[in-house]
């Protein structure tokens, strides 16, 4: 089985971009408050907590009150960023996210740290591969999965300006900056990372740069693969999916469960509007343990694995 691309020196941990951006924004907007569950370190918020101690609310290991407090802070005119490991934030406090944030329409920003299988060796209790499926249903919440440090900063800046609930899914797995120029962050709009017409690879988060590398490999073989960075999983950029379907074959790639997340969203839309073969790459269930590289490799989340899936999809499409 192919292994994931090794982490390189210029790869960045997006949590640093998140934390630096929030700290900068807090200097401009005194409404910004950080809410954490004893997760200052894992959220990289040590600097924020030192600079803004009165705007750092650490409720301890208590996710239900953490999210409820977020809703209450929004009621009191604050712009809370509720930051915790994605697995605990979204699973333990899902009812609070549903009722207190989404259904109540409160202006709460949920930031899921170390999402996907970032805590590889710690096992499935600490993996968060279900979060996209859970939160995508809660239509009020904009769900953003940044692909790199730049996009993480843009997403945090946009969330602070936007009036309404947002979920930003941050990885701790270092990733390179995407090699595309003249970028402008547009929530709800897919970004074309590679142009191509033989197949569309729709990815988000940590897998986008892998999909780009896969497209480069396919290009050498004469296969023209379009790569889309679908950072906003909800609401879905349906126009981009429609254009992708027009290529005749789609592969979705995400560091998440293959059911209900980005792949699920694309499959739902195409099944109803433009039937086309959709291969969904990701994780199809609990993973026991192993490094990120091992788990990515086993799932085929590598340039070689994505390229192989693309070839299969074109052949069987």
């Amino acid at each position: 089985m192919a292994q994931a691309a090794p982490v390189q020196k210029d790869f960045k941990d997006c949590r640093n971009a998140w934390a630096a951006t929030l700290e900068a924004l807090a200097g401009e907007d005194e409404r910004i408050v950080a809410v954490v569950n004893d997760s200052i370190g894992s959220s990289k918020l040590g600097g924020f907590a030192k600079a803004y101690p009165d705007r750092t609310v650490n409720v301890g290991i208590a996710e239900q009150v953490m999210v409820g407090v977020g809703a209450g802070l929004a009621n009191g005119g604050k712009v809370p960023f509720v930051s915790a490991a994605a697995c605990f934030l979204t699973a333990r406090a899902l009812e609070q996210i549903k009722a207190d944030v989404a259904y109540s329409g409160y202006n709460v920003k949920l930031v899921g740290q170390s999402s996907g299988i970032a805590y590889g060796e710690l096992g499935a209790t600490h993996h968060s591969i279900e979060d996209l499926a859970w939160l995508r249903q809660l239509g009020q919440i904009t769900v953003i999965v940044p692909a790199d440090a730049w996009e993480t900063e843009q997403a945090v800046r946009w969330a602070a300006r936007h009036e309404g609930p947002v979920f930003i899914r941050v990885s701790r797995m270092p990733v390179p900056d995407l090699d595309i120029s003249d970028r402008s962050f547009q929530p709800g709009r897919a970004e074309i990372v590679r142009a191509g017409d033989d197949i569309a690879v729709i990815a988000c988060g940590t897998t986008v740069h892998l999909a780009a590398a896969a497209a480069d490999m396919l290009s050498d073989e004469g296969i023209s693969a379009r790569v889309l960075n679908m950072a906003t999983v909800n609401p879905l950029d349906e126009a981009a999916v429609s254009d992708a379907a027009a290529t005749g074959a789609i592969v979705t790639v995400e560091e998440a469960h293959v059911r209900g997340g980005l792949g699920g969203a694309v499959a739902e839309w195409t099944a109803a509007n433009h039937p086309v073969r959709v291969s969904r790459m990701g994780f199809d269930g609990f993973r026991q343990t192993g490094s990120i590289a091992h788990l990515f490799g086993a799932a085929g989340l590598s340039p070689e694995g994505i390229a192989a899936e693309a070839r299969r999809t074109i052949q069987t499409g």
Partner: peptide, 27 residues
Amino acid sequence: VEANTGPLGHGLPIATGIAIAGQIDGA
């Protein structure tokens, strides 16, 4: 109405957040 309650055990956490906002502002 301040919050969309129904599932139980949600009001006090939300009220706690409201009170924290007031405490931060000295309201």
